[in-house]
Design a protein around this nucleic acid. Structure first.
Lengths: 201, 201, 201, 201
DNA sequence: GATGAATGAGCATTCATTCAT
DNA sequence: TATGAATGAATGCTCATTCAT
């Protein structure tokens, strides 16, 4: 079983990406300097540029990689015969997303901090990602309404509410020392989605 | 009644603050340069530093001013005898917040884009504001539960959900060209809070 | 009569241009650093960029300004009735060019060092200048042949010879400590043009 | 008789020199990067430094090698009894130089582009070469004057003129697509040297 | 107060050179 | 020999901040 272990990080590129995610998560894109990143990675200045063309390049790498993972993990709710309980599918999505996020809190932080609506290339990337999610949610809601499992509602606003719910809950999960368990959080989100919180008049 | 209106903007300081809010909202804090701000305000470089010590200074000004307004507008739900319907108080809060936000979309954008969790003075300011809000919501939930008007729930997570709901909905309101009316949005948020969206058993 | 004199240099821009010409003449474009220039000018780094957009910018400024001066000083030989002796016109041109060059030896050096034929913006600028000169000379030669005052010859090659003659003589003038007088040089060039140097068999 | 030809290029060192000459001729010394050269040569980065100490090293190699060739090819005009016609010797020199130049246009370009007068080691090398040539020409002129085959003239300036003539004509030869033949050029240069071009008295 | 020329610390990026394999 | 990943000094340029007028 040889001289394997060596480092937790497999190669230089990953090493830089890891360091960059830490630094970006701590200081934000603009306040993070190349010096910060290479110091954290313990490499020379030139080495950084051996693997990435620009500062922006690492950032985009980090972002798109994470967005791709999210994309793969989020499954549109299926309703055909024999499909699992839609509620469970929903809950699975939430759990999976929160799990992925808690695995890579730094990159998640970067994504959540991205200012949608700014004149900024990365912001646009994130924005279009969120729009895609919104669309997916809205479609699910529409289908749900047709099938009678979702109450009639303004599907746009409701999608926004759901997105906000998950984003904030995710942010809470990664910025707090001892957050509730992902199970607990998912349950609560689902509960909220099923019953709201108000016990009605 | 004095020398009256003169300008839409009362004084230099406000003039700069206004310009800064526009510029920050468009480009974000880091991408916005002093040059951008003074060009927009039509003043000289030195004049800017006559009214603000740093670039950060204007930003903080903008932020705390807005946070104060929000603080004043958000009223803890009162439940004593003769108090208005709690549901209505809740709805009023939401409506008022959204209205304030839509009145000052630029500063609102700045606040919403603030990256909670960064090593950043303004971020900390915003963070503590949000924490205050969270606390307020949590207390309301607890009281509500005692009074039997709120379903038993994890009050922390639920507070986070509610905060996320309002933040995302606010973000949607100020970044879209033809958003739904504030009434409509508030209603939907309340509906969601009362019934959730899922009809499931 | 007042605090006039102050500096030999009228304004900042000229001051920078002067320093730049010295530095470029000494080290060449690439070896000259912004630091060299601002040190020579005794100004701060930022000040340089207040007056010029790029390093290249100063260089181009220097070059085109000088080329313009040359352009104005070189007069096509006129042959109509009542025009001065063509030979004298020719001599005047040479004298004027050499005089201008000796007045601004640094910029002249820059121009003469420019590598015509390189993939380089400034080189192209200089190249097209020289081509213009070549054309002018060739036209003069053709007219001269028609009028019988120039011996039949390959006008292209002869133009190149004349250009080379003046360039080399100019280079000699500015790189030597105690060069012959401009008068002497011009005379010799004219003599060479009239009789060559060989006394033929 | 051995393993013979193999490649057009005999060994690694020549291979690098060839590539370097191409690259330097196209981009100039400073704009040419080691990367350009090794890419062109199809070798690894480290290999380059196996054969040359510095970037400058290749350049100097190229330069001195070419200067040596020129040195060997240019023969001082001999005037002793039984020596060939001096005019023919002169013409042979010019023809030979132009031929050598047209054989190795890249290196020739490099030499011609060298900025005599710069704080630059190669420039100094070239400069001293040109000075040697100038001296040789001047001596020839002096002897010629003594022998009555050269008109009395300022031998320094005339040498400079002759050098400029050949340099410019050489530059023309290698930078133009369809230049006149070397014969034609040589003839014209000689004609110019014998008669000038002006017919006037 | 108001101005805008001047400042210089700070940053991203390049590239010749080295060296372990 | 040959390789190419790694290095880090050097450079051009930006921009928040100052200050003499």
């Amino acid at each position: 079983m040889a001289k394997s272990i060596k480092k937790a990080v497999p190669d230089r590129k990953s090493q830089i990406l890891l360091s960059a995610s830490r630094v970006f998560a701590k200081k934000g894109y603009h306040e993070a300097s190349i010096t910060d990143i290479i110091d954290h990675a313990g490499i020379a200045r030139g080495t950084f540029y051996l693997y990435f063309k620009h500062k922006r390049d690492v950032f985009d790498h980090l972002l798109t990689e994470f967005l791709n993972q999210l994309d793969h993990i989020i499954k549109p709710v299926e309703i055909h015969d024999g499909a699992p309980d839609p509620l469970q599918q929903l809950k699975d999505n939430i759990t999976n997303v929160l799990t992925l996020i808690s695995t890579q809190p730094e990159v998640a932080k970067i994504l959540l901090h991205l200012s949608t609506g700014l004149d900024d290339r990365s912001a646009v990337t994130a924005s279009s990602f969120y729009n895609g999610i919104l669309e997916m949610i809205e479609n699910a809601l529409k289908t749900g309404i047709e099938l009678g499992i979702v109450r009639k509602c303004n599907t746009i606003i409701s999608s926004v509410i759901i997105l906000g719910t998950v984003k904030e809950v995710a942010g809470y999960l990664i910025t707090h020392k001892n957050p509730p368990s992902i199970q607990e959080i998912s349950n609560e989100v689902i509960q909220y989605g099923m019953n709201g919180i108000l016990l009605a008049k």
